[in-house]
Design a protein around this nucleic acid. Structure first.
Length: 428
RNA sequence: GUGAUCGUAGCUCAGCAGGCAGAGCAUCGGGUUGUGGUCCCGAAGGUCGCGGGUUCGAGCCCCGUCGGUCACCCCA
């Protein structure tokens, strides 16, 4: 500690082995492993396949897909120029990269729809708060090439299913339908006119949005603005018959698979590419950041990014938030055997035995800190080892090791040169 | 980016009118020349986030800065 010390960059965190009872859920390695297995298994059951794209892309890809005026693009991108002068950005969200890959690899020629999932870091340059980091992790899924409303239901059910498998509490899915471009051409001027009329009662942020992105006014947390928005015209009143039917089928499907949902006519989304179905999964235990996963249809995005005219839908879900909203879990320990050596020659024997057991799938560890006998037993205890295998002078002389069951306290002796019976002694 | 609040040992925190930097837990050793969880004893561990200022003297007061937390904006 003589030189300058370093800490992780602002807004980041570490996953590390520590005192699990004091760590945030997303800092615990065991919870990440647990969650990762559960989510992979869910994707498998729904026949999704992994897509893994770079953690950075041409900045233009994000500008084009998320919208030049969206906040994610205008103020939250980690953007940089590489040594070849390329304008790049750390991935702020998963959909653009996945769609780019779909186009680049001609996946629209495959049997449709193409169902993909991803799991990886996202970067947004913003001030952190509960459940929000500059580098966070999202799992997500994209279904490209079908506009069947049941595909929407599948996406939502998959999202909800993963959350429930890890015990996200009090979750409710909010859904809405934003209609197509034609719908919005009729609706937005109406909304804008209404907002203009009530400008005096709106907060400054919302006033500033009237021109740029009036639908986002519904998201304001300002009391007066909310009062105004309670009376505002809703997109739902402008939907075409097709869009209304689409929404009805989605509702029917969600009810059929048992996803708790509410239709929320005020739900809009911050990214410009959404059309038709949008949804947000919320859990009240997250505080101000109550959205644990969200997504929607983007029926024009593939074409906007230079691909064929193909519809798509997807969701992203913040893993840190999922773990935060999940019910408490006991930290899991996993060590089978801790070797205790009480004679210099015993160390090599223990090391070799450990190696044999490890190759049989048994987890082993031994002392590398020159601890005393007492210290080694303490360490075995702390590691939650099921067995301590003691090798000291006596054992070396007799050619055995002492296998101690750490919870019962009873001991048996096993020949040193017979790793099979040692294996049996510590099995199960 | 805005606001509030905090920053002392690995962790949780005490410290005061400005006067030698403390406790608990954790770590290591000893009490048991080879037996853990309990108990007892001891050791180690700090440029008091960093930089400046005021002062005979600053962990404490002032300014700045960095970082944490929460909220706003926005979003997973």
């Amino acid at each position: 500690m003589s030189e300058k010390s370093y800490r992780g960059p602002k807004g980041t965190y570490d996953v590390f082995p520590g005192d699990a009872t004091r760590q945030e859920p997303h800092e615990r390695p065991d919870l990440w492993e647990w969650f990762s297995e559960i989510s992979r298994d869910h994707f498998r059951r729904y026949n999704f396949h992994e897509v893994r794209t770079p953690d950075f892309e041409e900045a233009g890809l994000y500008r084009r897909s998320s919208g030049e005026t969206s906040d994610v693009v205008t103020k939250e991108m980690f953007e940089f120029t590489d040594k070849g002068g390329r304008d790049l950005a750390l991935r702020p969200e998963g959909t653009p990269g996945a769609v780019r890959a779909y186009i680049q690899h001609g996946m629209h020629k495959l049997a449709q729809p193409v169902k993909m999932w991803y799991f990886g870091p996202m970067f947004r340059h913003e001030r952190q708060q509960k459940g929000r980091y500059r580098q966070h992790t999202q799992i997500g899924a994209e279904i490209l090439g079908s506009d069947d409303p049941l595909v929407d239901v599948e996406a939502i059910a998959l999202l909800y299913g993963i959350h429930q498998a890890v015990g996200v509490r009090e979750e409710v899915v909010h859904i809405n339908n934003l209609g197509d471009a034609a719908t919005r051409e009729k609706y937005v001027p109406e909304l804008r006119a209404y907002l203009d009329k009530n400008q005096a009662d709106l907060d400054p942020d919302s006033v500033a949005r009237i021109e740029r992105n009036p639908m986002r006014t519904f998201d304001s947390k300002d009391k007066n603005t909310q009062a105004v928005m309670a009376e505002a015209p809703l997109v739902g009143e402008f939907l075409s018959d097709d869009a209304t039917a689409h929404l009805e089928t989605v509702k029917e499907g969600l009810a059929a698979v048992g996803v708790p949902f509410v239709v929320d006519g005020r739900l809009v989304r911050g990214l410009d590419y959404y059309t038709s179905t949008v949804f947000e999964a919320k859990s009240p235990v997250l505080g101000a950041q109550d959205t644990v996963g969200a997504g929607g249809r983007y029926n024009r995005l593939v074409e906007d990014l230079g691909g064929p005219d193909m519809p798509g839908i997807g969701f992203g879900s913040g893993v840190e938030r999922i773990l935060l909203a999940a019910s408490e879990r006991e930290p899991s320990s996993s060590l089978d055997v801790y070797f205790i050596t009480l004679a210099p020659e015993a160390r090599m024997a223990a090391f070799a035995l450990a190696s044999e057991l490890r190759s049989e799938g048994v987890s082993c560890d031994l002392d590398y800190a020159q601890r005393s006998a007492k210290g080694q037993f303490k360490q075995a205890d702390r590691s939650d080892a099921r067995f301590a295998v003691v090798i000291g002078e006596d054992e070396m002389r007799e050619g055995v090791c002492t296998v101690r069951d750490m919870s019962k306290g009873d001991e048996t002796k096993v020949p040193l040169d017979d790793s099979k019976s040692l294996l049996r002694a510590v099995a199960g």
